[in-house]
């Protein structure tokens, strides 16, 4: 039987990859894709725990989480569209209005 740790390790790896993407990519679209990756690594965690404790609650949470991820993506893209209309770009390193 595959130990739980392997699932969790995979999840951590996925999360780190997503994290690396979030930290390095300039395009907003790619950023959101990476965030999705991180969210799904969390879902993987939920499902793994659910399986290994013989309860279904975790999987229900995963379903909710997926639905929320959809909502989050929708809002994210809408925000990027608004930004694009204002600045004609969605390159995040050029959007430094929060700068000192």
């Amino acid at each position: 039987m595959i130990p739980l740790s392997f699932y969790l390790g995979l999840s951590a790896l996925l999360f780190s990859i997503g994290l690396f993407g979030v930290m390095t990519h300039k395009s907003g679209i790619r950023l959101i894709m990476c965030i999705e990756l991180m969210l799904n690594s969390a879902n993987l965690n939920l499902v793994a725990f659910s399986s290994y404790t013989d309860t279904l609650n975790g999987q229900v949470f995963a379903l909710f989480s997926i639905a929320l991820a959809a909502a989050e993506a929708a809002i994210g893209f809408a925000i990027f569209m608004a930004i694009y209309r204002m600045h004609d770009k969605i390159n995040l390193d050029e959007l430094n209005l929060l700068r000192w």
Binding site: S5, S16, F20, Y52
Partner: peptide, 25 residues
């Protein structure tokens, strides 16, 4: 930073004795 994070989480994951069922249902 990503590797650091992975290391921290990985150590946490593999260093913990997970209280799981012995057999998958």
């Amino acid at each position: 930073v990503a590797v650091l994070f992975l290391a921290v989480v990985g150590l946490g994951v593999f260093g913990t004795a997970w209280n799981t069922v012995s057999e998958l249902p």
